[in-house]
Design a protein around this nucleic acid. Structure first.
Length: 874
RNA sequence: GGGUGCGUAGCUCAGUUGGUUCAGAGCAUCUGGUUUACACCCAGAAGGUCAGGGGUUCGAAUCCCUUCGCACCCA
């Protein structure tokens, strides 16, 4: 066995081994299934801390399920991320001097596929370094043929059900990506801007009216001025018209109570094409709609001389012109929230366009019910239920179209001039048949059909993920789907609770009548020390593989899990990984110790060892119960911490020290065998957290065949716990701590033996005396009936322990110590007495609590008695 | 503007049904230790107005109200 643990070699070796043995692969069989589908990372992405966190948790769950005898199946895959990927491909083309506009759709898609093939597998390979035990044979991509068809089938089905419709709506337009974004993809930022006060001349009058706007460049699109009908300042202007400055168009003054008389000048310009609220007013008052922008947010011909200028440049120049022509009254500083594209950071332009929408209200109902009413799906931590509820109860129709090429192309075919002349069909041929019927025109040819140019929102494919990875959309009765679905756990971040999770629940019920998963576990976001979300784009994410290099995969896994409770953000700190690595070292050395002991088959097991084994067996069972409970409640970090303390404190610091023979002496066969058995149980519960080192040691213990690998062994069985053993030993631990304290106090090195006299008021079991002697390095241990002079003392419960020390005892110091203990106890007793003499407490508190208080009282009284006696004898 | 959550040791965070185990863990700090599996170690110590105030209760870090600070979501 090598002196120190070499994670690099080990990790590579065992990952290959697991793969070669097919342990990650699952096929339906008679066992119960335990399925997790990975939240598909972005195909162009690379591994960041969030992924590591997320996937470590999934791997812990799936490895534990495997050990517990489930047929565990973790399905990996990626999504095509239309906006992000298309943006990257466009950027790459640009760097090569090509423009997307010069390419045909097919040519562009070829570039996108090339890109995907080059970078697509990257993130999955990185997951392997982390130890992820995914069933790689099942790896899926949202644009695989079967996945593609599932999405198209779903679109057609929902359209037939009347849930998908086409609408002319104000959308969030990203002028950089030249696409629509959903509300969820827009981030708002406060920006310092100006409020411009602009004068409009009243037609056939010398009078003018002043409006305040943050966007003077949209004046080109003005089609009305609106005043509040109750505003007396403007009542004389009712029915008149104004002239748009510079543009010289005449527009009406309309009246609507929507206008806030307090804000600005109480007078509003209406630009229906470029503002959501103006659009509503425009519809109400039948106003003309003038769209002044091109798709890249430069001005079109409505912008007159400013045609072709970017909106911000146009604003600058137009304001200058307004000023020069005395239309600009004044400007004021003004902060407003500006919507930005999450992906490109471009300022969102509200834009009217034809889009495809999915009605959400109906679909949301089962999703609400299952999480909030029937609890068929459980959400961890439950605090997110409120957020979930609020979103679903106020859900808006989902704009599912994107003005992009990379993705699932909308299967709508236009056959005539009007934009409502279309049919939805799976193939062009089917579409032709439908179109002939609808148009009553049998002369229609394939060439007369034009397919919609847009693709579907990426989430419109990933909301099917738990079904489509098992081909459950196309073939709902297939064997695998029936076996693996519904899945068990979904592990993801709270930031995509609506984007993805809620929608998967909707799709699940819509298509199977069943939930897609039993449990939703929302992890925290990984943040850096400045509380910023860690992301590649901010450049504040440590390189994942570098971390693994430095601290080992096991170390990083432990580091990530250690201080991370569900749903709470984790401020990432590398020292946590260091702690994880330190833990590996500890485990390694624990085995090194057991392994290095020479065995003597002739010697009997010492009493101290048999006690140690009995104690640790029970301690292990107690911890196992806690661990099971933690897992059940998805308190993964607690489960890890419980295991950590069990192995480090109980196993290494106590158990191993107790069974360790004197230096150079051999160990008996029985103790060694039992220690190995207990160590193996440790490895089993550690395996989900630290798969590599545990598998390595498992094989160092013994030559094992393929089917005997740790990854496919059996999780320890729960057994009856002997609480008495644990309780008695805990008392013994206190005694040993007391001895250590005295040694420390008097600077008595451990190698120097001392004597111990025990005044056994508690009538504690003497069975453990051998251990006290061994662990305290006690020469003579005896029992006394009264205080012993010339000793330092300490107490455990009512028991008193005396240790003779060389030189004179400082009687005053001893008295002082005793008096302090006495004072504390008397205060404590008083508070307990107060409780017990309170009739309302005795009447109301549960019996269990009262008994505890009574026990406290008895213990305190006994101890006080002991101390008083000691004080007397001093 | 509306909603949700958070505030516990120097730092990062647990604290489950209000009641033993409750004021905890890890890191950092300090003191001592090593011929012995591990200095990636061992044995100890110190560190707290549970954000402030009020209330409910026999009993509050935990429940309610309120003030302050912070974060996130939605508009």
């Amino acid at each position: 066995m090598s002196l120190t643990y070499n994670p690099k070699e080990t990790e590579e070796k065992w990952y290959k081994y697991w793969l070669s043995q097919g342990y990650f692969h699952s096929e339906p069989d008679e066992r119960e299934s335990y399925t997790i589908v990975i939240p598909p990372p972005n195909v162009t992405g690379i591994l960041h801390m969030g992924h590591m966190m997320n996937n470590t948790i999934q791997d812990v769950l799936i490895r534990r399920a495997r050990l517990k005898g489930y047929n565990a199946c973790w399905v990996p895959g990626t999504d095509h991320a239309s906006i992000a990927t298309e943006a990257k491909v466009v950027a790459k083309l640009k760097a090569e001097g090509k423009s997307k506009n010069d390419l045909s759709r097919d040519e562009f898609l070829k570039h996108a596929w090339d890109w995907t093939e080059e970078y697509g597998g990257r993130i999955l390979n990185q997951l392997q370094k982390l130890g992820a035990s995914c069933d790689w044979d099942r790896t899926k991509f949202t644009l695989d043929d079967d996945m593609y068809e599932s999405v198209i089938d779903t679109f057609i089905d929902l359209h037939e059900k009347g849930l998908i419709y086409r609408g002319f709506r104000m959308v969030n337009w990203d002028p950089e990506a030249k696409t629509t974004l959903s509300d969820e993809e827009v981030v708002y930022e406060e920006k310092q801007g100006l409020l411009y006060y602009v004068n409009y001349n009243i037609k056939d009058s010398d009078e003018k009216i002043t409006i305040a706007t943050t966007r003077p460049e949209t004046i080109f699109g003005d089609t009305a001025i609106c005043i509040n009908p109750e505003d007396e300042r403007f009542s004389h202007l009712k029915g008149k018209e104004v002239i748009v400055p510079i543009v010289n168009r005449t527009i009406p003054i309309i009246e609507d109570t929507y206008v806030d008389m307090e804000f600005g000048t109480g007078c509003l310009k209406i630009t229906p094409a470029h503002d959501e609220n103006d659009k509503v007013l425009g519809d109400k008052h039948n106003l003309e709609i003038i769209d002044i922008f091109n798709e890249d947010a430069t001005l079109n011909h409505h912008g007159l001389d400013y045609k072709g200028l970017d909106r911000f440049e146009a604003r600058k120049q137009f304001v200058k012109a307004l000023k020069e022509n005395n239309f600009l009254e004044k400007t004021e500083n003004y902060t407003n929230k500006v919507g930005l594209s999450e992906r490109t950071k471009a300022v969102i332009e509200p834009r009217l366009s034809d889009q495809w929408f999915l009605k959400m209200k109906e679909l949301a109902q089962p999703a609400l019910k299952s999480v909030l009413e029937t609890k068929e799906i459980k959400l961890y931590p439950s605090k997110f239920e409120n957020t979930y509820k609020h979103w679903l109860e106020n859900v808006r129709d989902w704009n599912i179209s994107r003005q992009l090429w990379w993705g699932h192309r909308i299967p709508a075919f236009y056959y005539g001039e009007g934009k409502d002349k279309f049919v939805v069909a799976k193939t062009k041929e089917e579409a032709l048949e439908k179109a002939k019927k609808e148009s009553d025109n049998n002369n229609l040819k394939l060439n007369d059909l034009r397919q919609d140019e847009d693709v579907l929102d990426t989430w419109f494919s990933s909301w099917l993920w738990p079904m489509s990875v098992f081909d459950g959309i196309r073939k709902p009765d297939n064997k695998e789907f029936n076996y693996y679905y519904p899945t068990k756990d979904l592990v993801t971040g709270p930031d995509i609770l609506f984007f993805w999770v809620a929608r998967m629940v909707m799709a699940g019920y819509e298509y199977t009548g069943q939930k897609p998963f039993d449990n939703i576990y929302l992890t925290g976001l990984v943040r850096d020390k400045n509380r910023q979300k860690m992301s590649k784009s901010l450049g504040n994410s440590p390189d994942a593989l570098n971390l693994i290099d430095q601290y080992s995969a096991d170390g990083v896994r432990v580091g990530l899990l250690l201080s991370n409770a569900a749903g709470n953000d984790l401020l990432f700190d590398e020292s946590l990984c260091q702690q994880g690595k330190g833990f590996s070292n500890k485990i390694w050395n624990a085995f090194k110790l057991i392994n290095s002991l020479k065995i003597d088959k002739e010697i009997d097991q010492p009493l101290s060892s048999s006690i140690a084994i009995q104690w640790y067996s029970n301690k292990f069972q107690e911890a196992l119960n806690h661990i099971e409970d933690h897992f059940e409640k998805y308190r993964i970090s607690d489960a890890l911490m419980t295991s950590y303390k069990l192995v480090w404190d109980d196993f290494c610091s106590w158990f191993l020290e107790m069974i360790k023979p004197e230096y150079g002496k051999p160990v008996d066969q029985q103790t060694r065998d039992q220690a190995i058995k207990l160590f193996e149980d440790n490895l089993k519960i550690l395996h989900p957290f630290m798969p590599f080192i545990t598998e390595e040691l498992w094989h160092q213990i013994d030559d094992r065949t393929g089917s005997e690998a740790l990854i496919v062994s059996q999780w320890p069985k729960s057994q009856q716990i002997d609480q008495k053993v644990i309780k008695e030993f805990s008392f013994v631990q206190d005694v040993i701590s007391g001895i250590r304290n005295i040694r420390k106090q008097k600077n008595i090195a451990f190698k120097n033996p001392i004597d111990l006299h025990i005044h056994n008021n508690e009538n504690a079991s003497k069975a453990y005396d051998v251990l006290i002697k061994k662990m305290g390095n006690i020469n003579d241990l005896d029992y006394v009936q009264s205080q012993v002079e010339g000793c330092l003392s300490f107490r455990v419960k009512a028991n008193e322990y005396f240790i003779p020390v060389a030189g004179s005892i400082d009687v005053e110091a001893e008295k002082k110590k005793l008096n302090e203990e006495l004072n504390y106890l008397q205060g404590f007793l008083k508070s307990v007495d107060k409780k017990l003499s309170n009739t309302r407490f005795v009447e109301n508190a549960p019996e269990k609590v009262i008994n505890i208080e009574k026990q406290k009282k008895a213990d305190a009284e006994a101890k006080i008695l002991t101390i008083n006696k000691s004080l007397e004898s001093l």
